[in-house]
Write a protein that binds this DNA or RNA. Structure first.
Length: 595
RNA sequence: GGCCCCGUAGCUCAGUGGAUAGAGCAACAGCCUUCUAAGCUGUGGGUCACACGUUCGAAUCGUGUCGGGGUCACCA
């Protein structure tokens, strides 16, 4: 039970004893006491004052006295300002908390709750390499999954690879037309970049053809449809769905190149999946559902053979599910996959980490699922996040104005190297240790930068300014951890087992502050899971590191005036390191032993 | 136009019903014989977009306005 919970129940009990009335946690608020007032936690009494028709002073005094009498081991004092009852947590409570948890690597983690959740994230298209926006998705999805695990869920990470569709055909057409048999190997290009280049080439060519047609007098709308290269692409999609020989080999070959490139990137950024689905398989399932829906009247067919669903009764439009030529669209495969996921994995919830430009799409998917009579429509959750934009505007892969994921990761690692060399603290590191350190710091900076912001807000990235390594950053937190490891190396851990001495020491304000902060970690992990929001953890980790650094400078272990004090500070340090490590782990950020 | 999201210090962001609204960056002033200065301490910097309402109390809740973005595709 957390401190706030303990206070809650103690106050409820005191009210019951004093006034013979039942109250709940909603009848009063417990806040952390602001630094300018004395105390640790404050009870806001306005609502109670109203209900009980007592003056705040009297009410506060009554509750305060009661707590002092019956919860003396936990509450050691109180004061009243206006209608705020400020409580002091007893030293004994703080020290017992520290003694109990300082070495618990599972601190903050909850027991299994026997609920199964799938987190679908990443879900790349196989026609272009990953960019900065995908990184936000990958980090967010991975982190949400880990946060849920820490809260007792059984989690499956999954990805649906969009390996079919008109966009893939565009790359294939361009490669056939302009590739002259080139391969990633022959051009020394990473596979996903290689294929992505042909996607850009397609769009260049497409634009050229449209312009030619428009110049010859064709209206623009028509030109977009009639451009020869687009016609070829549409034919190719049709041929693909019919499994045309030769075409499948080309498709497999090009996808193979892309997967190889993706694997490299995933390995580097730490994305992993328990299950990978392929759209080329799920779209068939989707088509079957469409057929079924057509038979039972949920869907209807138009004159050209296209299949639609009418969602106007739930405030949405009609939606195309299958094209007139029988080929499937984006949502078709989603319909196929929903049921498979829930049934195969016995899921309680299915999360989709997808950008907020697809909020509408997910809403439509949910309604379709409901209309098809599947029972789990309400257990589909969209974890949406805002776009990452550049100072120069939006990233457009078709126009090649993107911050490439591989490039930015390289850049971050190079920056980490630059900073480290400038500081010159790592002269005794081996080559391998240095490489690992740069990787840890570079990825730490990158991940923290993308996770520290509330996911639902869009964020602007300025490619001119490299990501900072000072202040509210991953490396600052990593640095704090490395400092603590340094203490342990120097002073040794021999006295970390002796709690008997230091539990008698009086706590100084900074010591209290750090311990109280550490105690908040469990609640933070819960909150992050409820909100599906890793930035809650990121902000916590930063403030913990910040609080600890003040403590570190002011109250050094080396300068402790007694053995017991030294031991106490060592224990606080050890627990801080444990919590930092476990918080950063939830963000996918590793921690260096030295830096 | 309908629906959805956002608007807090020069910049990037916390804070979502409580006390005098907080961090980081940038600026300025201090602090390295000491367990790591990727750090610490201090100073300056605010009409919480605006208006009205609900409330003992509003950055936080409601309504409206303005500004930015998204979406309403036989693109994915």
């Amino acid at each position: 039970m957390s401190f706030t919970h303990l206070i809650q129940s103690a106050v409820i009990k005191s009210l019951e004893e004093l006034y013979g009335q039942q109250f709940s946690d909603k009848d009063f608020q417990i806040n952390e006491t602001k630094p300018e007032f004395e105390g640790d936690y404050s009870i806001v009494l306005f609502a109670l004052v109203k209900k009980l028709k007592l003056s705040p002073q009297i009410l506060a005094k009554n509750i305060g006295d009661y707590l002092l009498q019956y919860s003396a081991d936990f509450i050691s004092g109180y004061n009243v300002i206006k209608a705020f009852l400020n409580l002091h947590i007893s030293e004994q409570t703080l020290q017992t908390f520290l003694a109990k948890n300082y070495n618990d690597v599972c601190f903050g983690k909850k027991q299994l709750n026997h609920k199964k959740v799938m987190v679908e994230y990443s879900s790349p298209n196989t026609n272009k390499p990953l960019h900065l926006g995908h990184l936000r998705n990958n980090f967010l999805g991975w982190s949400v999954a880990e946060i849920l695990k820490a809260n007792g869920y059984e989690v499956y990470k999954s990805s649906i690879v969009n390996d079919r569709g008109i966009h893939i055909c565009k790359s294939m057409i361009a490669w056939e037309e302009f590739g002259n048999g080139a391969t990633p190997e022959s051009t020394h290009t990473k596979g996903d970049h290689f294929v992505g280049d042909y996607y850009v080439k397609f769009n260049d060519e497409y634009k050229k053809e449209i312009k030619e047609l428009v110049d010859a007098g064709t209206p623009e709308k028509e030109a977009e449809k009639e451009a020869p290269i687009m016609k070829k692409t549409q034919q190719m999609l049709l041929d693909w769905e019919h499994g045309k020989p030769g075409l499948m080999e080309l498709w497999n070959k090009m996808n193979g190149w892309v997967y190889k490139g993706f694997d490299e990137t995933y390995k580097r950024i730490g994305s992993d999946f328990d299950k990978t689905f392929y759209e080329s398989q799920t779209y068939i399932l989707g088509k079957e559902f469409v057929k079924k829906g057509l038979e039972d009247g949920s869907f209807y067919e138009k004159d050209d053979g296209s299949v639609w669903i009418d969602l106007s009764d739930v405030g949405l439009d009609e939606k195309l599910l299958l094209r007139g030529d029988g080929t499937s669209v984006y949502i078709t495969q989603d319909i196929g996959l929903v049921k498979q996921k829930f049934e195969q994995y016995q899921l309680d919830e299915s999360l989709y980490v997808i950008g907020d430009e697809q909020i509408h799409h997910m809403k439509v998917l949910k309604e379709i699922v409901r209309k098809l009579g599947m029972p789990f429509a309400d257990n589909i959750l969209h974890v949406s996040y805002g776009m990452v934009e550049l100072t120069t505007g939006k990233m457009k892969s078709r126009e090649g104005t993107v911050v490439d994921a591989d490039d930015i990761v390289d850049e971050m690692i190079a920056t980490a190297r630059h900073h480290t060399e400038e500081l010159g603290k790592v002269k005794d590191f081996t080559e391998d240790e240095l490489r690992e350190l740069y990787e840890t710091l570079g990825m730490g900076a990158m991940k923290f930068y993308l996770l520290r912001v509330d996911p639902k807000k869009r964020m602007v990235f300025n490619p001119e300014e490299s990501i900072d390594f000072h202040g509210f950053t991953g490396p600052f937190i990593q640095y704090t951890y490395a400092r603590i490891q340094s203490i342990l190396r120097k002073i040794g851990e021999q006295d970390t087992n002796d709690k008997t001495q230091w539990t008698k020491e009086k706590l100084l304000p900074l010591e209290r502050q750090v311990i109280l902060f550490l105690e908040k970690y469990e609640n933070t992990v819960t909150q992050a899971a409820e909100e599906l929001n890793p930035s809650v953890i990121a902000n916590y980790a930063f403030h913990l590191a910040k609080t600890f650094n003040s403590f570190y400078v002011e109250l050094s272990v080396a300068n402790a005036e007694s053995e017991a004090k030294r031991s106490l500070r060592l224990h606080i340090s050890v627990m801080t390191a444990t919590v930092i490590k476990s918080a950063l782990q939830l963000l996918g950020i590793a921690v260096p032993e030295r830096m």
